[in-house]
Every structure is written in C-alpha cells, then in structure tokens.
Design a protein around this nucleic acid. Structure first.
Lengths: 237, 237
DNA sequence: TCCCTGTGTAAGCAGCTGCTTACCAACCTA
DNA sequence: TAGGTTGGTAAGCAGCTGCTTACACAGGGA
C-alpha cells in the first residue's frame, strides 16, 4: 500500500507543473519477497496471462469496463498489476482480448435457429454465486455493463453485436432481415439489461422457460426461421 | 519480445480520463469573473439552481452518470462548482432531481395504448444535432448511458422503469401481464440502447415508421390491448 | 454603524485511476 | 563464470474525481 502525500510540508501549487524531484539514487532495500508461484515449475508466463484473462473476464462482467480497475483485476488473478501491462499493454487491449475470447465462443457453438433461446437461457440462469463461472454466458453481461464507457469500448460492443446480428439475420428471408435481426438482438440486450443490471421485477424473478416461450413466440413473426421454444429439454435431433 | 509498449506515439496521456474531453467551455475564466446573475435583480440563487439542473440534464444524457463530472456540469452552467454542492448536496442527489424532473414527463402525457410507438418515435427521432433537445426523449437516454454506474443510479432507473411497466401492464388481461409489460419495456430499452448508445447499423439508420411497424406487430401477441401502428399520422379519436 | 445571512469564488484535500520505472531473481546459453 | 533474456515485484507518477473549506462581497434589519 502506498501512502503518498503524507506530510511533506511542501504543498504543490495547483496550476503549476511539478518540478519532478526525481531522487538521485534509489536505496531499494531488498526485502526478499517470497515467490508465491509454483515451486519447482519451469519459468513460463503463460499461466499468469491466462489467469489475468480469467480474472478480467469475471470482473468486466460483474462491474463493466470502467468500474473494473486494473488493480482489482490483478488482485483477483493474484498477479502484480505491472504484469497486466506487460502482457496486454493497456486496459483497453485487455478488454478487447477478453471480448474476442469469450464473445464468439457461445456464437460458434450454437446454431442460429437456437441462438435466441440459448442466449436467453444463459442470461436468465442463476449467476452461480461463487467465483466459478462458465465464461461464455457472461460476454453479453460484460457488454451490457460497459455501454457508455467510451468510444473504444463501444467499438468492441458493436463488433460483437454485428456477429450476433449476422447469425440472426440468416433466420429470415425478408428483404429487411438485417433490421429484423437487429431488433431481435435489441430485445435480447434489453432483457439482459432489465434482468441482470436493473433487476426489474417481475422480469428478474420470472421463470426462464416462460420468458423464453413469450419471446420466441413473439419473435416468430420477425424471424420465421427460428425454432420453436423447447424449454430445458434436449432439442430434437 | 512481449508487447512492451514501445510505440512512441504522441499519446503521453497517463491514466485513462476520457477520449479527449475537450473542455466544453473556457478552461480558465479570464480575470473578469463576470457575475452572470440578474442585472438589477434582487439577490436570488434560484436562477443558478435552474441553470445547474439544465446543464446536468444535458450532460447526464450525453455522457451518463459517471462520465458527466461535476466540474463539467458547473462549467456548462457557468457556475462555480461549489454552488452545485450547496444547492444539491451531492452529485447523486442532483442526478435524482434531474431524473425526477424530466423523467415522467413523457409518461404522463401519453395514453398507455400508444406508449410503445410514442417512446419508439421519440427515441428514433433524429437527435437534433444542436444542443437543443426535446427533453422527454433525453430522460431515457440518460438512464441508458448510466446503467452499471452504481446501485443508487440503478435505483433511479428501476423507479422510472416501474412507472413505464405499470402503464404497459394495463394493455394485457393475461395472468402474467406484469411480465409481458416488462418484456415490452425491455425491448424498448434494448432498441434505444442499440440505436442511441451503440449506434448499431442497420437499426440506427432505419426508418422510424418501419421499426415501429415491426415492433408493434410482434408485440401485438404480448399486449393484445395495444393499438396498431399508425406511423406519423394522427391517431384515431 | 454593526452584525447577520446568503450568494459567489478560489484553492485545496484525500483518494482514486491507468500506467511507468527501476530493480530483483531465475533460467538459458556460451 | 559471465552475459543475456525473461518473469516477477515495489514504488511511484501525473492526472483525474467528488467534495470541503476559507473567504470576499452584497444586502437588510437593528
């Protein structure tokens, strides 16, 4: 913990750039810190990088981009925060890697005609209370909590949204299938927002199956290629 | 070599303030403090309070709660920032007053059966490029950009959402009319988010009438009491 | 004249933010 | 043994944040 501005007696003036004291020599007492990493393991930074990605994924989903600080991410990963910048360069770059890693996972593993109910199910699922997380289901939550965080973040949101909308657009033969897909995606995003972020009742406490039935039913007229709702049971082969 | 951030770009900015804030007004008031209060009028702090509310309303809508700083709000109102705290106590209290002031205006002036298309129309309307704004459509934008800003802000979002959902719930006789209203509201919010905040294409550039037709058509199965879409023309009696 | 009250102002506090720097320790090769 | 590369660490820096404080000034009543 740093304790700067303790009581040095010299109060820096507000509008003037500080003269940058720059200590001539750094004593640097070697306290011999205990290396907490794997004993006997080979030298490898990959696990550290992986843990940073996992911690960032969880924290971005929980708090959004701005409220997830690099200090908290590093602490969650049990990694020195300077390593975060060595591995990823900046917080924004880390965010980009997280989004591109988790974001397309759900998309790649789900057929378009089941995308709506799959996304709904993962968003409506209980948040698993523990730190343990599925990872893929939280990509949308990450984006939800990060809206309005800045242009660069909005770009990542837009990119992922484009991927989802493209998949949904294949479900309609209409001339304006792109717009219809955007509207379907907007509904998913709105439901996630009201449920996860705002926790609006009765939506937040509603049964996931019932929500899925209502949404898929109403969307059936927008995206005629969508499969009917199947609840939690296995799909037909 | 790991990404060591050796790029000698012209961006020495530390921290991550904003994407180039660009002070909206004069960064340093000239030696002429210019007492802007009423010339010849009696001593009164009400106009100052009013200007603070207006500036806060505009900035909260443009940037959301967290990115709208008290310094920027005070500067926009051409008021010393200490007066902001004298009048409202805290930034959060100011946010609450702004939301309650122009939050329910649209709700009170619209019949429930036309609420969906009215909200859609105001959200899909061109943002008027200038600083000038209609006010009613701004409250939703404020809330959209402020999601994930904190529990206190979420409470304000929830309160306003409850009002809208209650109005929408009167449109259905179903047993789960509350849930159906929440889903309809979620769609409106999602569309606003994708259009105003994310600017997702083709939704952001779509014709308001076409969007209204698609949404009202699909929602007709959720809220059977909703009036059919009428475009920009006047409603039936 | 004096005090009291209320408006407006400049300066600053304490704490946070993303990011950098200087160093140490472990491994690999020569 | 010497040198280089790389993973890991502590201690900052500069700038921002919401908010506070001390003070100047203008009225109104006594």
């Amino acid at each position: 913990m740093v304790a700067r501005r303790t009581d040095a007696g010299a109060v820096p003036s507000r509008g003037e750039p500080r003269a940058r004291p720059v200590p001539p020599v750094a004593p640097a007492p070697p306290p011999a810190p205990a290396p907490v990493r794997d004993k006997g393991g080979v030298r490898d930074g990959a696990p550290t990088r992986e843990r940073l990605l996992d911690a960032a994924s969880a924290l971005f989903a929980e708090r959004g981009y701005e409220r997830a600080t690099v200090r908290d991410i590093a602490a969650r990963a049990r990694v020195n925060q300077a390593l975060l910048f060595r591995h990823f360069g900046s917080k924004r770059a880390l965010f980009g890697e997280v989004v591109s890693r988790d974001g397309t996972e759900q998309l790649r593993s789900t057929a378009p005609e089941r995308l709506v109910e799959t996304v709904l199910a993962s968003m409506l699922a209980p948040p698993t209370a523990d730190g343990g997380d599925t990872g893929s289901s939280r990509s949308l939550e990450t984006l939800l909590r990060s809206v309005g965080a800045g242009d660069e973040v909005s770009a990542a949101v837009t990119a992922l949204g484009d991927d989802y909308a493209r998949a949904l657009a294949t479900l309609s033969d209409a001339d304006d299938s792109g717009l219809r897909a955007d509207l379907a995606l907007a509904w998913l995003v709105g439901i996630g927002l009201m449920r996860v972020v705002v926790a609006k009742q009765p939506l937040a406490g509603a049964d996931a199956d019932e929500v899925g039935r209502l949404v898929v039913g109403a969307l059936g007229h927008l995206l005629e290629g969508m499969a009917p709702h199947h609840g939690q049971g296995p799909g037909h082969g």
